[in-house]
């Protein structure tokens, strides 16, 4: 039982980080109608901005994290939108998807060439203690990961539902034409979506790198898992992405512990096909309409 509790917590902790990446993925899908195949690399890169700040610019950790966040928003949000997505509008579709695939190679290879092919240690941000709770060893880091991710998601939801900007973003996602008529600056709203995505990716990066280490290839599995989390949960709903992320995190750990370690990587495929056959709109998705 204590093992079950531990594995469950580890799964929830990892799953909440998947959820952050998955939410960003759904945001981009709604804003630009595209699938961002570089999402995994978006989570990989911010950790390296932080490492550059610490090792080359000599910043203290807190400042480096802030720097990493800003750089992520600038490069993965603003530049990505302005240099790649915008020139392709209004016709996106296949070419944009393929451009994001190429972008994922570009980011990976650049990190490898300019920073290093080896995994890099990443400073511990959260306390490393463990607690003993009824026989189970509970990691404080796991709990805090979960708390921080959930807080970020709640804050995002409040922003989208309670502020004028947030509601304008929702309107833009649901119906750009009507939003324009209503006087909303849709271009700006779409840009905000890209910036938020970059911010979420940076947060996921900072939470996951202390344990997984920073490495150029880290995005490979992370990206796929985030997509599948979004599809499983339903990608017109934020809570769908959260449910999908948590579900995959937990199931992955339970599969590896109790069923098979050799085939644990096959789990996403199985989930994906089941969902498509049984509930194509995802677990929490709705049939019609988009909603940020």
């Amino acid at each position: 039982m204590s093992q079950f509790a531990q594995v469950l917590l580890s799964g929830l902790s990892t799953g909440s980080i998947y959820a952050l990446a998955a939410i960003g993925f759904t945001l981009i899908w709604q804003a630009a109608q595209t699938v961002n195949f570089a999402q995994g690399e978006f989570v990989m890169l911010p950790a390296f901005f932080v490492l550059v700040a610490i090792n080359f610019l000599g910043m203290p950790l807190w400042l480096a994290l802030l720097f990493g966040l800003l750089m992520a928003v600038l490069v993965l949000g603003l530049l990505f939108k302005k240099l790649i997505v915008e020139p392709m509008l209004p016709k996106t579709g296949l070419p944009l998807i393929i451009a994001t695939m190429a972008l994922s190679i570009l980011l990976k290879e650049s990190v490898k060439e300019f920073y290093g092919a080896e995994a890099q240690p990443f400073p511990d941000i959260l306390p490393q203690q463990t607690m003993n709770l009824a026989g189970a060893v509970i990691s404080v880091q796991d709990i805090l990961n979960l708390v921080i991710s959930i807080t970020a998601v709640v804050a995002l939801t409040l922003f989208l539902n309670r502020t004028i900007t947030g509601r304008s973003m929702q309107a833009t996602a649901q119906n750009p034409a009507v939003a324009t008529i209503l006087g909303i600056d849709t271009k700006r709203m779409v840009l905000y979506t890209f910036l938020i995505n970059a911010g979420l990716a940076a947060l996921a990066s900072f939470l996951i790198s202390p344990l997984y280490l920073a490495k150029f290839s880290n995005g490979e599995t992370l990206g796929v898992v985030a997509f599948i989390a979004a599809i499983v949960g339903g990608f017109n709903q934020i809570r769908g992405a959260i449910a999908g992320g948590l579900l995959i995190g937990v199931l992955d750990n339970l599969t590896a512990t109790y069923i098979t370690a050799e085939y644990r990587a096959a789990l996403p495929l199985v989930l994906l096909i089941l969902i498509i056959l049984w509930r194509p709109q995802g677990l929490l998705g709705t049939d019609e309409g988009r909603q940020v």
Binding site: I84, P87, M88, P95, L96, I98, A99, M101, A102, L103, I105, L106, E109, S110, E113
Partner: peptide, 12 residues
Amino acid sequence: ILYATLVIVLMV
């Protein structure tokens, strides 16, 4: 890196 850039430029 060059190759990936080429692909992006081509797509754009």
